[in-house]
Nucleic acid binder design. Structure first.
Length: 875
RNA sequence: GGGAGUUUAGCUCAGCUGGUUCAGAGCAUCUGCCUUACAAGCAGAGGGUCGGGGGUUCGAACCCCUCAACUCCCA
């Protein structure tokens, strides 16, 4: 059967993935090899593969596959994250569509629905990763709510509580009125929005017709005002110090305070204080011991303090109250104003600062080793610039609000036995809690009398244990696996979760293992569309990765995604890159087509082939060192590009063109064998990037019998590099290019054989004489002592090359060309001589630099000489 | 408001300690070729005051100052 001209990836991907799985190549168990471990950033259980995962996972797979080939015990641990808010929202939505309200369900009923859903639809994304070729150890797939994992999470909570690092208290938190839960500072996204500034008049109490005007963006919170504040230095208000005002609508009397927090320049210089609904007001409230009036219900509507607005949504109230203030004469004016508003990362709802009882982690001590070990490069960031961002966050780290008013997640192991603020204990089970409660109070409590905290923990409170818990390092400390695989090697993730996840894993690592969780962190960029927008589901600008794989092949997409994605830089993605990737796989395919079609006959190897083999061996070795170096520096795109060019340019365009026998000619045995050996090495180098086609070709070129697969082949070791040879070949390439150029300019068909004469070759032949004859399609290559008239010519390295004219020839054009060249060289000479005649340059520059300038001068002079003669010869 | 980063060819990016690795790569473009591995290809070519201005230096894409634009992080 004839080999198709075009590689068809769809036919082989599934076959090889199944084969790899069957052979258990992805599975790792501890042995005496060096471990190489990556834990996947666990995608949300509800997630589907998007371009970000694609980039991220491809990089991880490249690293894992190369490590495997380097003989390391490669282990890539996959899994999913329960993603409490996102998943709960999804389940609630799904139930709603079925006519079920969450509020109608008990906690257990709800969780029953959730788990049922998870079992059915969860983990689609892991199946999608398989299509990409991800060589994860699927036997190690973890889920952050697995039994043992959950135990770790809860135990860590208990431990930190017992160490005094977790506390419970009333604090100002970020409230998401849509998800009805508190969220952490990191989950709030601030955005500039066009809003309005309302100027509202408050009457001074006890004075006749004296008013003070405040400016606010949130008039609906007026009902919760408990003070007015001015800057003590503000002369405009000195006469009002110590007075009180009457809050409009609420008709409450509140004091006028002075504090230098107030910016005299902003608005009217007079600030209303609503301690329950603004973090800064809250601080002032604490300072002056103000009452705080919480106006809002959990869903963002007003409560009984909202008076006649009770039950109305906060944004609706803003409109209504504007109207009321206007009608009653309290509103003096409004202005357009741009301010920053916090939005929930998950639900996009406007965050409401709200006082509430929550659980917090005290971060100060945890942050110390985490900061130190990144700053001293024990943990290395790629690119390094992210160290700055990391340091800034760590140095200003705030306590972490970890309780969420949700059901989907790890329930907080706190048990309440009374109504007092401190009437609780923290324990793994109700039984233990009962005995602890008894210890604490001296009273015996029945298990049934205890109420467990209703809240669950922030998702990241489980994710931060990921590198430890996937090896059961907390439930079974010092088990052989954790001791072998931890610390892991590389973490590949986006900079957007540096604080959510990376920083906290580092903290947990030092707290619970006394060691870093990973050695290197590679931050990928954000995948953007052509217009520079972040690819997202809501914008609908993200291509479906699976459709891309079907169109271009997994290998093509992998190459396309990596071909221009330096660490930390955004990846502007365009499908044309996948096209390039696909073309590359097709190129590989055609190497096979060519080589496999060669018929072997036992005859002496042509000289040109012999030369080409020596040259390519050096070239391959040299490039291999460069590729390894690029990998060591996590310059993955560079490593790919080096591989790409080695194959496309050096191997295909030069090496194979030299080796290739003429049409229907056989090849000598040795050349074919060596060529296949080269091809095998090249396939190994491409394998991490394009696993499927390389496995297919590996078998097609004869490894089928040997019972081995490329996935476990050894990464080549670089052998000898002959630099002189490489240099000589460069000259050969230039000669050939010049010949081709003359052909092109003179419209000489490729089939027409040309004669080439060289002047200035003193001893023997040109390097690569036979190669030049073959690639230049020459009838003859001869050496002469005198310049030749009536010939095209070019100059390289002081040697003159001549190609005699055919019948007709455009001398004028040839002369113009030489004149232009002459002009350029003369300009060049002038600049070189300018340098050399500069006293200061000659005396201060290093002698090597001066020498090289002198050589340039000599070369230029002799070239000018040659060109001038040529022009004379042309007449 | 505070901090970090970026600005080099049409696009995406390399460019190390200031000097022959110095103005590069890939893609795109243009021009020839359906040359028996590949037109998803081959061969050639043209593209840049290295964001603007100033300075240091014998010498600056690289160091310093300044202005501008963009991106990200934090409040």
């Amino acid at each position: 059967m004839e080999t198709p001209k075009i590689f068809e990836p769809g036919k082989i991907e599934e076959k090889w993935y199944a084969h790899w799985m069957e052979k258990g190549y992805f599975h790792s168990v501890p042995d005496n090899r060096e471990p190489y471990t990556i834990v996947i950033p666990p995608p949300n259980i509800t997630g589907v593969l998007h371009m970000g995962h694609m980039l991220n996972s491809t990089i991880q797979d490249v690293l894992i596959r190369r490590a495997r080939m380097l003989g390391k015990n490669a282990c890539w641990v996959p899994g999913t994250d329960h993603a409490s808010i996102a998943t709960e929202a999804k389940i609630v939505q799904k139930l709603k569509a079925e006519g079920i309200q969450k509020s109608d369900l008990t906690r257990d009923e709800f969780l029953g629905h959730a788990f049922k859903w998870k079992d059915k639809h969860g983990g689609i994304i892991l199946e999608q990763l398989k299509k990409l070729g991800a060589s994860c150890d699927w036997e190690r797939t973890h889920f952050t709510m697995d039994k043992e994992y959950s135990e770790s999470v809860v135990n860590v909570f208990i431990d930190l509580f017992n160490k005094g690092k977790i506390y419970r208290g009333v604090r100002m938190v970020n409230w998401d009125p849509e998800a009805l839960t508190a969220v952490s500072d990191e989950e709030v996204i601030y955005k500039e929005v066009n809003s309005r500034l309302f100027y509202v008049r408050y009457k001074i109490d006890g004075l006749d017709d004296e008013w003070i005007t405040i400016a606010t963006t949130r008039p609906e919170t007026i009902l919760g005002d408990t003070a007015i504040c001015v800057n003590p230095l503000d002369k405009r208000f000195i006469h009002l110090h110590g007075k009180s005002v009457i809050v409009p609508i609420a008709n409450r009397i509140v004091p006028i305070l002075t504090d230098d927090y107030v910016d005299m320049e902003f608005g009217t210089g007079c600030l209303k204080i609503t301690p329950a609904h603004d973090i800064n007001d809250y601080e002032i409230g604490r300072k002056f011991n103000l009452a705080s009036i919480d106006l809002f219900n959990e869903n963002g509507t007003l409560n009984e303090y909202g008076l006649h607005y009770q039950g109305v949504d906060r944004f609706e109230v803003r409109k209504l109250i504007e109207k009321e203030l206007h009608e009653t004469g309290f509103l003096s004016k409004t202005e357009d104003h741009i301010n920053k508003v916090g939005f929930s990362e998950r639900t996009k709802a406007v965050i409401e600062p709200k006082l509430s009882m929550q659980w917090f982690v005290d971060m100060k001590d945890l942050a110390k080793p985490a900061l130190e070990n990144v700053m001293n490069n024990s943990i290395q960031f790629y690119p390094e610039k992210f160290k700055n961002t990391y340091r800034h966050w760590m140095e200003n780290v705030k306590d972490w609000c970890i309780s969420r008013q949700l059901w989907w997640g790890h329930r907080i192991p706190a048990w309440y036995y009374g109504e007092g603020v401190n009437d609780f204990v923290v324990a793994l089970t109700a039984e233990k809690a009962a005995s602890l409660a008894q210890e604490k109070t001296g009273v015996a409590y029945k298990v049934e009398a205890l109420r467990q905290d209703e809240d669950v923990l922030d998702t990241w409170f489980s994710s931060w244990l990921w590198p430890i818990s996937v090896f059961n390092g907390l439930t079974q400390p010092n088990n052989p696996e954790i001791n072998y695989y931890y610390p892991t090697n590389d973490l590949v993730t986006g900079p957007d979760i540096m604080f959510f996840w990376v920083a906290r894993m580092v903290m947990a690592g030092y707290e619970y293992k006394g060691d870093m969780p990973f050695k290197n962190v590679y931050y990928t960029g954000i995948v953007r569309d052509k217009l520079g927008r972040k690819m997202s589901k809501s914008l609908g600008n993200s291509p479906d990765p699976i459709a891309l794989i079907e169109q271009y092949g997994a290998d093509g997409v992998r190459v396309g995604v990596l071909i221009s994605s330096p660490a930390g830089n955004d990846l502007p993605f365009d499908t044309s890159q996948c096209e390039q990737g696909r073309n590359f796989t097709n190129k590989l395919w055609n190497v096979y087509r060519l080589v496999s079609a060669w018929e072997v006959v036992d005859f002496e190897q042509p000289h040109s082939a012999n030369l080409a083999i020596d040259w390519f061996e050096s070239k391959l070795n040299k490039t291999l060192l460069e590729i390894n170096d690029a990998f060591d520096k996590f310059r993955i795109s560079d490593a790919l590009m080096l591989t790409y060019k080695l194959i496309w340019d050096d191997f295909c365009s030069w090496y194979l063109e030299i080796i290739k026998p003429g049409y229907e000619q056989p090849i000598d045995k040795l050349s074919k064998e060596v060529t296949i050996a080269f091809f095998e090495k090249l396939l190994i180098l491409v394998h991490p990037f394009a696993p499927f086609i390389t496995e297919e070709l590996w078998h097609l070129i004869g490894n089928d019998k040997k019972e081995n697969d490329i996935i476990v082949a050894s990464w080549p070791k670089a052998g000898k590099i002959d630099d002189a040879l490489l240099l000589n070949f460069n000259q050969c390439e230039e000669v050939v290019s010049n010949i081709r150029n003359i052909r092109k300019q003179q419209n000489i068909a490729n089939k027409v054989k040309l004669a080439l004469f060289v002047k200035g070759q003193v001893n023997g032949q040109l390097n690569f004489h036979s190669v030049i004859i073959k690639l230049g399609n020459l009838s003859t290559l001869e050496y002469i002592n005198e310049s030749m008239k009536g010939a095209f010519s070019f100059v390289l390295e002081g040697k003159e090359f001549f190609i005699p004219f055919g019948e007709e020839m455009d001398t004028a054009a040839e002369k113009d060309k030489i004149l232009a060249e002459l002009e350029y060289i003369k300009g060049f000479l002038k600049s070189v001589q300018g340098k050399l005649s500069n006293e200061k340059f000659v005396s201060s520059a290093p002698s090597s630099v001066v020498e090289s300038e002198k050589k340039k001068e000599q070369d230029a002079l002799s070239t000018i000489d040659i060109l001038t003669k040529k022009i004379a010869d042309l007449g």
